[in-house]
Amino acid sequence: MKQSVFFFLIISLLSPAVSMGQNVDDVVAFANRQFELGNYSLASKEYNRAFFFGAGNKDIITLRIADCYSQLENYEQAGNFYDRAYRLSSSDSLKNEAILGKAFCLVMQDKLMLSLIELYNFEYTASKEQQSIYHFLKGLTHFGLHDDSLSYHEFVKIAELQTQQSFDIEVLDSEFEKILNYNKRYNPQRAYIMSGIIPGSGQLLTGEIKDGLNSMLLIGGLYLIALRVMHLYSFWDAAIALFPWIQRYHMGGMEHSKELAATKIDQKRYESYLNLLELTLPQRYE
């Protein structure tokens, strides 16, 4: 009887210690699982919980929170957590991860100069994968800043880093050659001058046939009317009556052709950008 009472007491006393709730490690494991499943909002909350209640590896957890926010496209918040992860970590590899993550967020926010500044903190003793991403982000940033030759060199370095060449360097060359040609072919200044000499020709240069013919007919018609007025009345009559209209449409057409050329270059650059992404995109961003 006495023994059974003792047993009862022991079980009662041990039960709170044995029947444990979730501990911090369980929370991290749960967060990891949610991250793998792509439930980034829930994962970020659980990583935060683990961080707050004293889980080890605070730098890794902070990095994971940043990754969650990056996946959720909340780049500003992600950037804050990458900064924290950088400060919390003493490992070069993790610091590099934080830099790459932050730089990516800045690229996504179109803060290209800031992204470039961020990348200057990158330690070049990193793994090949990190180096590839570093060059990829730098290439992307330079491309966005219209520094095409610098961008090209960064993309070439990605190919150089691969033991098994991941992409054909000739394809990269031809893509950048195309970019160079677009800039020459659709030179906005040239389109502007052409439209000045022959109305509508600048638009035709950019492939906008309808716009070009419209401008040609309209301005040509105005000039014909002006000639007719000159013939019937006087030069000054024609000038006063039709100069404002001719000036409005002729100058407007020149400006318009310049804008069209610039837009065309942007369109072509965007196509090239997509091709470059397809060619050089690191696995983690796929």
């Binding site: 041990l14 709170p16 210690a17 709730g21 501990n23 911090v24």
Partner: peptide, 10 residues
């Protein structure tokens, strides 16, 4: 057993 710290419920 009585000295065992009961786990904190987070």
């Amino acid at each position: 057993a009585s000295r065992l710290p009961a786990q904190e419920n987070i």
